[in-house]
Amino acid sequence: MISGLVIAAALVLPSVVGVQPAAASTPVTVGKSQGVPGVKIAAWLSLLAAPDRASFTQQAVSVADATDEHPYNVIIMNLAIDYNMQLTGVHFFATLKFEGVFYGLWIAEGGTFRNKGDGGYRNWAFVGQFTRSGEGGKIVHFH
């Protein structure tokens, strides 16, 4: 387990279409890493460069998902937006700060995540095996 580790390293990003490394780093604080290469994921996340928050969330989940091709689901959420989660098998959690906004990023085996606020990419993004329900598809059931 990695606790309270702040990463800002120079690594080569995994091959993800449209993702370019930043000249300056994105602050990443890892709260949990178990069963995935957390330091590597955090280092790659710290190098993200995006023109806006919507692009940032999509790049972050793509980079986290591409790391060592793990079989898990990835979700990022603006922590200022109300949400409810019941994720199972959480292997990784980190906070990221982009354009003054703090995001949480989880890598998990399954469970449910409900966004109670704005559902745009500026505030959340996810990849993996899932179905959506609820008004506006704001409840995500990961398998």
Rank of each mutant, 00 (worst) to 15 (best):
Q20N: 09
G134R: 07
T26F: 05
D118L: 03
K40T: 09
S46F: 10
Q59H: 15
S46N: 06
M1D: 08
F102L: 02
F126E: 07
R114N: 09
L96S: 04
V140A: 11
V36P: 01
S55Y: 08
D82Y: 06
Q129V: 09
W44F: 01
A80N: 08
I76H: 09
G18Y: 09
L5N: 05
H143S: 13
V28R: 12
T131D: 14
V17K: 15
F56L: 05
V19F: 07
K32M: 11
N84Y: 11
A64F: 02
A22M: 09
G100A: 11
I107D: 01
N78I: 01
A64E: 04
M77E: 00
I2F: 15
Q20H: 10
F92G: 10
A42E: 05
R53L: 14
V101S: 00
T131G: 15
H143D: 08
D52W: 03
A50F: 02
V30E: 02
I81F: 06
I139C: 01
G136Y: 06
F126T: 10
I41Y: 01
T67G: 00
F126I: 00
V28F: 09
V12F: 11
T88S: 13
N123Y: 09
K32E: 04
T57I: 07
V140T: 08
R122E: 14
L87H: 00
A54V: 02
P51T: 01
V17A: 15
F92P: 02
R114V: 04
K116M: 05
I76G: 03
G128P: 12
S25I: 06
Y72I: 00
W44S: 09
K138A: 08
F56S: 01
D68L: 14
Y72F: 15
G111D: 06
A125E: 03
F92T: 00
K116E: 12
Q58G: 03
G134V: 00
P21R: 13
V19Y: 12
S33G: 15
A66Y: 07
A94K: 06
S33I: 02
D118E: 13
M1A: 15
Q59K: 15
G31D: 11
Q34N: 11
L87A: 04
V17M: 13
E135D: 13
L79F: 04
P37L: 14
W124P: 00
N123Q: 03
V101Y: 03
N73E: 02
Q129R: 13
I7P: 03
S133V: 01
N115T: 06
F93N: 06
V19R: 10
G137I: 00
R132G: 01
V28T: 04
V6D: 12
I81E: 14
N123K: 02
I139Q: 12
I139K: 14
A60S: 12
N115I: 03
V140C: 09
T26R: 11
I107Q: 08
T131F: 00
Q34G: 08
V36H: 01
M85Y: 10
G89D: 07
T67F: 10
S33Q: 03
V28M: 06
G18C: 04
H70A: 11
T88R: 12
I75G: 08
T112P: 07
H91F: 06
A9D: 13
S25K: 13
E135A: 14
Y103H: 08
D82M: 01
T29Q: 11
